[in-house]
Nucleic acid binder design. Structure first.
Lengths: 223, 223
DNA sequence: ACCTGAACACCGTTCAAGT
DNA sequence: ACCTGAACACCGTTCAAGT
């Protein structure tokens, strides 16, 4: 009724949007050419008129997520901007859990991710980091953000499988006492605060590095 | 000739080993039940007598990698031990590039990875970290290691695709000047040193946290 | 107990054919 | 120019049948 009557023309953007919606709802493994076509009221083969192949759709989905991350302001206080940007990026990666997966097998060198990287590198350089340290800082911030998103997204404590490894709570305490002792912290999933803990350590460490090279810079933040 | 004549019995371990070898050589996407069977001189369906399904094989492959990481010694200097262990873990993750991918879709709560996690948590607790900070430290170290491996493994600068995004070097310099300026650093792939740069910042930050809570601890390392 | 062949319900992608 | 149906070469997995 809704979309079959009218004839909204098929475009690359409509395909990407439908793929994102499908992946958000059912998981990326449910995104197939046939299902995506059905979702758009069209045969699977029609998609190939607007998209090179399935990998092209995946690339578009990645770009879609990076476009939703505001670019870091150019000449701002690098610490506050990097902190805020990383928090938003983490939020986007977690609310589209499939993007980390796609990034790994597709790489992150699309238009939008390149632009995001470029602006962030520019901010770090304008803050006074050497080219080499800028690269190191980027790598570190990216590792921490992607790695944390990775952990939040991966596995997901599927109870069935978990019981397979550790049949009982008593057995967990016997063989993995430290894991058992920290279980409350491991289960507690307040992603933002936990992520920020590490992020602040990294930012402070990078600031210290900056101060060591260019003395007379801003004071270290009292974290 | 070699393995078809004799009748080495099929076992779960032989299947996992063959799957690891196949994934190392051709990539994890080439690991199918049929190809794995062919590699072992057997029909695909025979594998189901020794393994629950394909995900069971993936779980075994993950465990195989974690078994190759030496467990951190219990009462050692936490900084040196964590540093060395993280470097080895990174090396293992990079030399089996598929493991990061599998970890994401399967979760890392197999026997071996749980044991590894438990020993590391034990080391951190015995070093004096509170339970909450132990959890934070684990999260941070895991994020950095997995995130860095993730970046090393992902994408891989496939030239064909790369040209698709940035047709010419001139265009790269125009639209992404900072990326272009840092290209030499981005291309230089000395993974170990780069990873250690961030790792040392994290370890120092965690030590500072430890000193703040329990004054009179060991002196901060002059990194 | 272990292995097999045929079959089922899926994939991505190609290609000639339709309009 | 865009869409389609049939087809090809793959998947993971089930199941009855072999030994």
């Amino acid at each position: 009724m809704t979309s079959t009557g009218t004839r909204t023309p098929l475009t690359r953007d409509r395909i990407i949007d439908a793929a994102v919606a499908l992946a958000d709802e059912l998981g990326v493994e449910e995104v197939s050419m046939r299902k995506l076509g059905a979702e758009l009221g069209v045969e699977a083969m029609s998609l190939y008129n607007h998209v090179e192949n399935k990998d092209g759709i995946f690339d578009g989905m990645i770009d879609h997520v990076f476009e939703s991350i505001p670019l870091p302001a150019a000449e701002s206080d690098w610490r506050a901007t990097v902190r805020a940007t990383a928090l938003i990026a983490l939020d986007r990666f977690i609310s589209h859990p499939w993007v980390v997966n796609l990034l790994m097998q597709r790489g992150n060198y699309g238009q939008s991710s390149l632009r995001f990287m470029d602006r962030t590198l520019g901010l770090l350089r304008s803050a006074g980091f050497s080219d080499e340290d800028t690269h190191h800082a980027w790598q570190m911030l990216a590792s921490h953000t992607m790695g944390y998103a990775f952990q939040q997204v991966s596995g997901g404590y599927d109870d069935k499988e978990w019981d397979n490894v550790v049949p009982s709570q008593a057995e967990l305490a016997e063989f993995f006492p430290h894991v058992a002792a920290l279980a409350p912290y491991l289960a507690e999933c307040e992603a933002g605060a936990e992520f920020a803990f590490g992020l602040d350590i990294i930012i402070s460490g990078l600031q210290a590095r900056l101060d060591a090279v260019t003395p007379g810079g801003s004071q270290p933040l009292g974290l």
